[in-house]
Each structure stands twice: as structure tokens, then as C-alpha cells.
Simulated scan of single mutants.
Amino acid sequence: MIKIAFFDVDGTLIKLGTKELSDKTEKALTKLRQNNVLLCMATGRSYPTIPHFQGIDFDVLLTFNGSYVKSGEKIIFKNPLHNEDKNQIIQNLKNMKRAIAISNENFIVTNGTDEDLAQYFAIGNETMIISDDFDKLSQNDIYQIMCAGRKEEYEKILQGTKNAQVAAWWDKAVDIIPANGGKGNAVNAVLKYYGFSKEEAIAFGDGQNDIEMLEAVGTGVAMGNAKYEVKERADVVCKSVEEDGVYYYCLENKLITEI
């Protein structure tokens, strides 16, 4: 029996670049909650920029690719970047002449912009705030650093770090998080908090940063629009987000009934 469901946001619950749930996806979430299934939003987005869907209350918010997790007002798990790694990455990116975004539970700011970083923010319908206080703000705990970056640049971006990793959901930009972070570890923390077994959990995702999450639950569902490597690591593939994959999977597998 499924007791908790984890959902990536962009490309899973909503189409990339949009803000609202489809009618069928909204109905699926509503019915799951009525069936006493806990809902967990599991996103790479920063905590200050998580979307809010009218009529849908998530029991758990798993943000920054798992580095900051809340159940109601209680913080279940938090895992900021190590200070040495944070400072090294920022310096690496400055050497690369790359615009940098940093975020924690209170803010998300950048020290500038470029085409790919601007598009990264636009995909999530997020407002880019360029701050003159970037260097000062960077001395706070930072859960995630975002920047433009291709796969061949990952090593250069992380050069000199010991406990950092890239969690990418798009091939033109990166989310940099602690090496012991990621959605999979956060899912494990949530299951432990609630006393649920792996088999009592299901997860839906489409990006590479969702793979660990899909493997941390009893049933990992890749969206039809997911990349090949995500589908290969999932237990099952459903319809795409454009085809209301979450709704039809839940309906066909009797997690919900026709509404």
C-alpha cells in the first residue's frame, strides 16, 4: 500500500516553462491526498521559489535537490555546502567569467547574468535578482549554487572541491549541491521521519537529478518525456507530462479512481 508519493515539479507535475497544473494532474493529487497518501514536492528549485498550486497542499517540501526538507514548519533535513567547497566553486566560476546564482532558505540572488542562466530562471518562471551584496550574502549557509554549464565543464567547475557534486536537470546549466546530498538521500530521511518502508513509497520524475529518488522508493516512475538514462533506471515509464502521465499512471494502477 502506497503511503507517500514524491513528485518532481518541472517536466513531471507541470510542463517546462508553465506555472499551473493541468486539470487531470490536479485531480490526481487531490484524490491521492483524499486516499491518505502523503504528497511530497521533490524539486531542484530553491525553497524561496517553490511553486504554489491553488487547492493543493504538500505534506513535505524537498527542495534544493534534497538539501533542505520541511514537513509543515519542521525542518526534517538540511545539508548546506561546506564553506571551503562553496568558496572554491564561487572562485572557479569567477575565473571562468561565469554568472553565479546562490540560494538558501531565505534568498536566491546572482552576481550577474548570461543567456543560459537567464533561461534557467525563465524555465522555472523565477525572477532573477542581481545583488550588489552577492559576496556578503555568499558568506551565509548556501544550499545550492547555480550557473550555466555543460557536461564537459563539470570537472572545471568543481576543481579543488572535496564534498560537492553536480545535479543537472538541463544540459545547459547546473545545480551544485553537497556530495552527500541529492534527492535520494532526502527521500531516505523523509521515509525514516515518517516510519515508512521503501515499498510504501512511489516517486515520479523526468530529469537526471531524479534518478536517485526513483531508486530510493519501491516504485520509481519515469515520465514519458524523461531522458533515456532516467527511463533505464526507473521501474516503469508512464505517459509524458503533456499527456497527464501522473494522472493516468495513478488511475491505471488503482492509486486513485476515476473522478
Rank of each mutant, 00 (worst) to 15 (best):
Y248H: 09
T43E: 04
Q165H: 00
I130K: 10
G11T: 09
I177D: 01
R150T: 13
A118H: 14
P51S: 00
K94A: 13
D210T: 05
Q208E: 14
G207H: 01
S240W: 04
T30Y: 01
Q159E: 08
Y154L: 08
D210M: 02
I177P: 01
N253G: 06
E199H: 09
T25H: 07
K172V: 08
K31F: 15
M96Q: 13
K86P: 01
K15V: 14
N65L: 02
N209D: 07
V187Y: 05
P178A: 08
E243Y: 08
K3N: 14
T127P: 05
Q91V: 10
K151N: 11
S67Q: 12
N185K: 14
T49R: 08
N125G: 15
L251F: 08
S71K: 15
K172G: 00
E252K: 14
F204T: 02
V166M: 09
D135Q: 12
D116H: 15
I75W: 07
I142R: 05
E152C: 12
A118D: 13
E20Q: 14
D116M: 11
D132T: 10
G224R: 03
I202M: 08
K231T: 03
G44M: 05
S138N: 10
S71W: 00
I4L: 00
K254E: 12
V230K: 01
I14E: 05
N92K: 09
Y143C: 02
D210G: 07
N104C: 13
I130D: 09
T49F: 06
L93F: 06
Q54I: 03
N79R: 08
G124V: 00
T110E: 07
D59V: 04
D135V: 14
G207Q: 04
Q119G: 03
D206L: 06
A164W: 01
G184V: 07
N225T: 09
G205A: 04
E243T: 05
K15L: 15
D23S: 11
T219I: 09
G55L: 05
K86H: 04
D114F: 12
A164M: 04
F7T: 03
N163E: 11
Q34L: 14
G149T: 08
D114R: 13
V236D: 07
S46Y: 07
Q144T: 08
K231Q: 08
G149M: 08
T219D: 00
V174G: 02
F58T: 10
M223P: 00
I259V: 12
